[in-house]
Design a protein around this nucleic acid. Structure first.
Length: 731
DNA sequence: GTCGGAAATA
DNA sequence: TATTTCCGAC
């Protein structure tokens, strides 16, 4: 039996995982299809054809038969099978190629995006909004991404190699497991298995290095032409480490520059064999919470602790990923993926205004420190170490980031490639930026239980997969299938996000200054129209949470904030895509300068004496207007007040002689009294009841004065009140 | 041939 | 949850 480590394929392990039924290891149909596609022997039955990822079922009955054999469903037929395939439409794993009989197309983008939400598909230029599939399945596994882009490896029209090349031993293993269902040996599975088994690794070895050759049509096995001729070693190295790089591949095969088996036509150009945890090339045992640095090569290594799946690590080169995805976007239909996907994969992070360290310390310190510590302890080499091999120094990446670290207001649409994954788990800030890779939000159930350190298996609602993964440690996030579980990790908890919708609906990933970890992230999504009601609700809930969370982050009003934060760590992930409403622009400065800094600002307006005009008595606390309101309102009010005051004076003077008696002295007095005692300005729309009330201007209406004495008194009161107001206003 | 609802199944 | 099974509709 091969282990994941045996695999040389980059297909997400979760792809092979029967997450649907924790207990059963049945292969999934799409996986099975991929398998068939990968095997030449079945090319008469099913084969890649047409667009990238597109395949045609040449012999529907046979495919159905094979599937039935695999699943021990003798009654299987194409009608049934096709129904199953149609279910993938909604999942966005597949879609139908219209007008072509028996032709379907894999949405690899989706598959990829699921795991690499941070990739900006928008840059592809195509109008194709890529979506991450709604956490297809399961979980908990990580996968490696092809080092090079298809575009580089394959020409758009080039025949597609079977993605099946990506099948990992895991898949094989799974297949066998599934065979168990029909262990009679007649199952297709065994057939397929035979083809793959044992050959894979060797082929991998052969693969290629030189590039040349293994063109399509090359040898027959699933792993033939492991590396596309055009695949540069550099790319591989970047991804998997330089040749001979120990850090890179487990080298179980020993080849220094181990080859990555690739199906020539496979949408996924290459994939290194993931080694056992710690042994994998790119997957140093690190926190899945990738702390991505701005480097072009974003190392992503799930923490072993989080990944139950050995060899489930996955790493990728962001650039490659991006190119790959872009290539896909150009060649693949727009699946009309719903933003939900993004919601689930909130990787899109918008750089937030730099926050004072204090905030962080207060909010995230505990977690971050803890996580980091854990990581350090468990990671051993640490992802960084492993990544180092594969990734250029941060400095290199610097050019990728248009935005300087800590930029206060990064452009919302920074270059996708520059979007760091912000997992929140990153080690001490090596880089000013954080790459935030956020896992899809957990289902309620998951969220409820995820935070807990106990490793969860099984029942996952949304992900469909059981997260065998490990979220348990709770300290880190895991990717890939773990996305869902990842959300449970507190990694991201520190960050809050602000989401925005991109008209294009294209997800953007932003570089986030590390310091801003907790700041809002902005996710761009198109719509959630197809969201399941539940999910929508959930999202709304999250949204609410997010907002509140933001508040908490900004104002730690009480001890609960921290705890809450902790409890909602998983939510944070969601927050990322929940796109909380950003504070009104006008408030931002204020927030930055005040609220953010002081947790004390949370809650009731703080009664602090604002600077007032020298020598003047300070306004009673109650009258003190929050700086916020003061900034926006005081000038107008002041002017207004002056104006009114002048008018009042004039009126008073003139009226004094007129002896008008329509006045309501009592009211006037009351008003004055109130004003002194901190009365709200009713007339002033800007005035709020919070004490930022403008001067008590009792001028509305007639200024008629009662008796002379009364008028005088009134005038005095007015004057006094006005003066107080002005003084206190201190604009 | 394709689609998708509905119920059943494992 | 991921189909499997059935079926009506287009």
């Amino acid at each position: 039996m091969k282990t994941p480590g045996d695999t040389g394929f980059a297909f997400p392990e979760w792809a092979y995982k029967p997450e649907s039924s924790p207990g059963s290891r049945q292969i999934q149909l799409w996986h099975f299809i991929l398998e068939l596609l990968r095997k030449e022997e079945y090319h008469d039955v099913i084969a890649w054809q047409g667009d990238y990822g597109e395949f045609v079922i040449k012999d529907p009955d046979e495919v159905a038969r094979l599937w039935g054999a695999r699943k021990c469903k003798p009654q299987m037929n194409y009608d049934k099978l096709s129904r199953a395939l149609r279910y993938y439409y909604n999942k966005r794993i597949l879609h139908k190629t219209k007008g072509k009989r028996f032709t379907y197309k894999f949405n690899f983008n989706k598959l990829v995006l699921v795991n690499y939400p941070f990739i900006d598909m928008g840059s592809s230029g195509s109008s194709v909004p890529q979506s991450a599939p709604p956490v297809p399945t399961g979980a908990g596994t990580h996968f490696r991404f092809p080092p090079s882009t298809p575009s580089e490896v394959l020409s758009p029209n080039e025949d597609l190699r079977s993605p099946g090349g990506m099948f990992s031993s895991v898949a094989r293993r799974m297949a066998r497991g599934s065979v168990s269902d029909c262990s009679d040996g007649t199952s297709v599975n065994s057939e397929i298995e035979e083809g793959n088994t044992g050959a894979g690794e060797e082929r991998v070895e052969r693969g290629v290095s030189g590039g040349g050759g293994g063109g399509p049509g090359g040898g027959g096995g699933g792993y033939r032409s492991i590396i596309h001729p055009r695949l540069s070693h550099e790319a591989l190295f970047r991804m998997y480490g330089a040749p001979g790089n120990p850090a890179g591949h487990p080298s179980s095969r020993g080849a220094p520059g181990h080859r990555i088996p690739q199906e020539p036509l496979s949408p996924f150009p290459v994939s290194p064999l993931p080694g056992p945890p710690g042994a994998s090339l790119l997957a140093p045992p690190l926190s899945p919470a990738l702390s991505m640095t701005p480097t072009s090569h974003l190392p992503y290594t799930p923490s072993p602790t989080l990944s139950p799946m050995l060899g489930s690590h996955f790493s990728f080169n962001p650039e490659d990923m991006k190119r790959y995805l872009q290539a896909h976007t150009q060649s693949v239909y727009n699946y009309g993926l719903s933003p939900r996907a993004f919601l689930h994969y909130p990787n899109i992070v918008i750089p937030q205004p730099h926050r004072p360290a204090t905030d962080k310390s207060g909010l995230t310190a505990e977690r971050g420190a803890t996580e980091r510590a854990e990581r350090a302890a468990t990671a051993g080499g640490g992802e960084r170490g492993g990544d180092r091999h594969h990734h250029p120094p941060l400095a290199h990446s610097a050019h990728h980031h248009p935005q300087p670290p800590h930029s206060t207001h990064p452009h919302p649409h920074s270059h996708p490639m520059y979007h760091p994954l912000h997992l929140g788990e990153e080690p001490p800030h090596i880089s000013p930026f954080k790459f935030k890779l956020q896992p899809p939000p957990l289902g309620r159930k998951q969220r409820d239980g995820q935070c807990q350190s106990k490793p969860r298996q099984g029942s996952l609602s949304s992900g469909s997969g059981s997260m065998s993964s490990t979220s348990g440690l709770g300290s880190s996030l895991s990717f890939g299938s773990d996305l869902s579980s990842a959300s449970g990790s507190g990694v991201i908890s520190a960050s809050s996000s602000t989401q925005s919708l991109n008209s294009a609906g294209l997800p953007k990933i932003k570089v986030e200054p590390i310091s801003d970890i907790e700041s809002e992230e902005e996710v761009e999504v198109t719509d959630i129209s197809d969201e399941d009601p539940d999910e929508r609700d959930h999202e709304f809930e999250l949204f609410s949470l997010r907002r509140s969370r933001v508040s908490n982050h900004h104002h730690l009003s009480n001890g609960t904030a921290a705890s809450q934060d902790h409890h909602h760590d998983d939510d944070l992930d969601e927050d990322v895509f929940k796109a909380p409403a950003p504070p009104p622009p006008g408030l931002m400065p204020f927030f930055a300068s005040h609220h953010i800094h002081s947790s004390a600002h949370r809650g009731p307006p703080v009664l602090k004496s604002e600077p007032v005009e020298p020598g003047e008595s300070s306004t009673p606390p109650s009258l003190t207007a929050p700086s916020e309101s003061a900034q926006t309102k005081c000038i107008p009010l002041k002017q207004r007040f002056k104006r009114r005051w002048s008018e009042d004076q004039r009126m008073e003077a003139s009226q004094e002689e007129s002896d008008d008696k329509k006045v309501r002295p009592e009211e006037e007095r009351d008003r004055v009294r109130q004003s002194n005692g901190c009365v709200e300005m009713e007339e002033d729309g800007t005035g709020s009841g919070e004490g930022d009330s403008p001067p008590p201007l009792a001028y509305e209406g007639s200024l008629t004065t009662p008796q002379a004495s009364q008028r005088r008194a009134s005038a005095e009161l007015h004057r006094a009140a006005a003066q107080l107001s002005l003084e206190n206003k201190d604009c």
